[in-house]
Measured scan of single mutants.
Amino acid sequence: MTEYKLVVVGAGGVGKSALTIQLIQNHFVDEYDPTIEDSYRKQVVIDGETCLLDILDTAGQEEYSAMRDQYMRTGEGFLCVFAINNTKSFEDIHHYREQIKRVKDSEDVPMVLVGNKCDLPSRTVDTKQAQDLARSYGIPFIETSAKTRQGVDDAFYTLVREIRKHKEKMSKDGKKKKKKSKTKCVIM
Rank of each mutant, 00 (worst) to 15 (best):
V125A: 09
Q61H: 13
V7C: 05
K128L: 08
H94L: 09
T35L: 00
E31I: 03
Q22H: 12
A59K: 00
R41Y: 03
Y40P: 00
S65L: 11
G12D: 06
R164S: 06
V160S: 11
D126V: 08
D154Q: 09
D105G: 13
T127D: 12
T35G: 00
L53W: 03
L120W: 12
V45T: 04
G151L: 13
I84F: 13
V9M: 15
R73P: 02
T35P: 00
E37V: 01
K175E: 12
I24F: 05
D119W: 02
V125K: 10
G77I: 04
L6G: 03
Y71K: 00
L120F: 13
V152T: 11
V125R: 07
R123A: 12
Q129W: 12
G15A: 10
K175G: 13
K176N: 07
K16L: 00
K101D: 14
K5A: 11
A155F: 04
E98W: 01
D126M: 09
R41K: 05
Q22E: 03
Q43C: 01
V152Y: 06
D105C: 04
E162G: 07
R135S: 10
F141G: 06
K177T: 15
C51E: 05
K169Y: 14
V186D: 13
L133D: 10
L52V: 08
M111N: 05
E3Q: 05
N26K: 02
S122V: 08
F156Q: 12
D69R: 03
I187R: 15
T74W: 15
Y32Q: 00
A18M: 02
G13E: 15
F90N: 07
I163S: 01
D105S: 11
T148S: 02
E49L: 03
E76N: 04
V14L: 12
E162N: 13
T158N: 09
V152N: 09
T127K: 07
K172N: 10
G15E: 08
Q70M: 01
P121Q: 11
P34C: 01
K178L: 05
S145R: 10
V44T: 06
S106R: 09
Y71Q: 15
C51G: 09
L120T: 12
P110D: 01
V186C: 13
A83N: 14
C118I: 13
Y40V: 02
G12V: 04
Q22D: 12
I139T: 06
Y32V: 00
L53A: 05
Y137V: 11
E49R: 08
L159S: 02
L79T: 03
Q150H: 03
R41G: 04
G48H: 11
D30R: 06
C118K: 11
N85Y: 07
M67V: 06
L52I: 09
M111Q: 07
G48E: 10
T183N: 15
D126G: 09
Y40Q: 02
Y157A: 11
H166Y: 08
P110I: 02
V186A: 11
L23K: 03
A155E: 02
T158M: 12
L113P: 03
R123F: 07
G75T: 04
K117V: 15
I139C: 14
N116A: 14
P34F: 13
D54K: 00
R135N: 14
D105A: 08
Y32R: 00
A155C: 12
H166I: 09
S136E: 15
T58A: 06
R41W: 02
E98Q: 03
Y71I: 15
K177M: 07
E162M: 05
T20S: 13
Y32T: 01
Y32D: 00
V160P: 05
V9S: 08
V152R: 05
C118G: 10
T183K: 14
N116I: 07
G13W: 14
R102A: 04
L6W: 02
Q61V: 14
V45Y: 02
R135C: 10
I55S: 04
V7K: 00
V45R: 10
C80A: 06
V29K: 15
K104M: 13
R135Y: 15
Q22G: 04
A155Y: 01
K147M: 14
M72V: 15
N116E: 14
R164M: 12
Q25V: 04
R68E: 15
V109T: 10
D33Y: 15
G15M: 09
Y40T: 00
V14S: 11
T50W: 01
F90W: 14
Q131C: 13
D108N: 11
L79M: 04
T50P: 15
D30E: 10
T50S: 07
Q131T: 13
N26S: 12
R41I: 04
E31G: 02
I100L: 15
L113S: 03
Q61E: 15
D38M: 03
G60H: 08
L56G: 10
K167Y: 10
V152S: 06
D108M: 13
D173T: 09
D126K: 11
M111F: 12
I24R: 01
Y96V: 10
L52Y: 05
F141C: 10
L52P: 01
S145T: 13
F28M: 01
M170C: 09
Q43P: 02
E168V: 12
E63V: 06
D54E: 09
D132Q: 08
M170G: 12
Y4N: 04
V114P: 05
I36A: 00
I46W: 07
L53M: 09
K165R: 12
K167E: 09
I139S: 06
D108E: 10
Y157L: 10
D154V: 07
N26M: 15
A66L: 13
K177R: 08
T50F: 02
Y40E: 02
D57H: 00
V7D: 03
K104W: 15
V81K: 03
A66M: 05
Y157I: 09
R97E: 07
G151F: 04
L23E: 15
G60V: 07
I21M: 09
G12H: 10
E49Y: 08
D126P: 09
D57P: 00
V9G: 05
E37M: 00
T127M: 08
A11I: 07
K165A: 10
G115D: 07
G138N: 11
C118S: 11
V152H: 05
T50A: 14
I55C: 07
G48T: 11
C51D: 06
R123C: 12
D30H: 09
V8A: 07
G60W: 04
A134S: 12
P121L: 10
S39I: 11
D92Y: 09
Q131N: 10
N26W: 15
A83F: 03
F82I: 06
L113A: 07
L23Y: 13
V160C: 07
A18V: 11
E107I: 11
V152Q: 06
R102L: 07
G75N: 03
Y4H: 06
E168D: 12
A59V: 14
D69H: 10
G15N: 05
P110V: 03
G115W: 06
D47K: 05
N26L: 13
D153P: 07
L23W: 13
G48I: 06
P121E: 14
V125I: 11
K177E: 12
S181V: 13
V114K: 04
D153E: 13
K169D: 08
D105T: 06
K128V: 08
S122I: 08
T183A: 11
D132E: 08
D173S: 11
D57I: 00
D33T: 05
C80K: 01
E63W: 01
I24T: 10
I84L: 13
Y64C: 15
E3W: 04
M67P: 13
L23D: 02
Y4F: 10
L56R: 00
T50H: 03
V81N: 04
Y4P: 15
H166N: 12
G138D: 06
